[in-house]
Amino acid sequence: MIDLRSDTVTQPTEAMRLAMSRAEVGDDVYGDDPTVNSLQDMAAEMFGFESALFTASGTQANLLALMAHCERGDEYLCGQQAHNYKFEGGGAAVLGSIQPQPLTNQLDGTIALADIEAAIKPDDIHFARTRLLSLENTIGGKVLPQTYLANAQALAFQRGLKIHLDGARVANAAVAQGIGIADIAGHFD
């Protein structure tokens, strides 16, 4: 049985271990690792982006994305149940000096658009500047509908926010909806 609770508990099969031991390798610092380069190219194509970056974990990927979209002292909006808020050791706050603003996840996993709108801070030096909306798909085993993602993206863009996808289980969301990963990722920066 494959354990899909987290990227940190899944164990490789013997065939995976064999493939890893036989993989062509090079110096990734100089961009000379053909296996990593191939993986990044494949991921970029699957997600519909011009490039991708291999990270060692979903936690690292989320932290890099949050820090790329926010500056020190900024804030990001996310669900109360979001991994990058609840389970990732406070990395955004500790390492990025980024303030999370958790909002209530509805029973279907979404965050009410009215709640998102109400949480965006005014342009005032007394507040952390709201810079980013972070959504997770799937969240708590629930798939966020494409119409919701389109509406959340429109709201974020209208308010000058970037939008981040914690996509550790995005392949599950794509399969459940019978669509490509790029169809989901297209709603995110």
Rank of each mutant, 00 (worst) to 15 (best):
N37H: 15
L39R: 02
M42S: 14
M42V: 13
M42T: 14
A43V: 10
A44G: 07
E45I: 10
M46G: 03
F47D: 14
G48V: 09
S51P: 00
S51R: 06
S51G: 06
L53D: 14
F54D: 13
T55P: 03
S57C: 04
S57W: 00
S57T: 12
G58D: 12
T59D: 13
Q60D: 09
L64G: 02
L64M: 08
A65S: 13
H69D: 05
H69E: 09
C70A: 11
C70D: 09
E71A: 05
R72D: 11
R72I: 03
G73H: 14
D74M: 04
D74T: 05
E75D: 01
Y76K: 05
L77E: 09
L77A: 02
C78N: 03
Q81I: 02
A82R: 13
A82P: 15
N84C: 12
K86V: 01
K86W: 00
K86R: 13
F87C: 15
E88R: 09
G89Y: 08
G89F: 06
G90T: 02
G91R: 10
G91Q: 12
A93P: 15
L95Q: 15
G96I: 13
S97T: 14
S97E: 13
I98F: 08
L103A: 06
L103S: 07
Q106G: 08
D108Q: 14
D108P: 12
D108A: 12
D108N: 03
D108H: 10
G109N: 01
G109H: 11
G109S: 10
T110D: 13
I111G: 10
L113P: 04
A114E: 13
A114G: 11
I116Q: 01
E117D: 14
A119G: 13
I120A: 04
D123E: 04
D123L: 13
H126T: 02
H126W: 01
R131C: 12
L132M: 10
L133M: 03
L135Y: 02
L135K: 05
I139K: 02
I139F: 00
G140P: 06
K142V: 04
K142H: 11
L144W: 00
P145D: 01
Q146T: 03
Q146S: 06
Q146I: 03
Q146N: 11
T147I: 15
A150E: 11
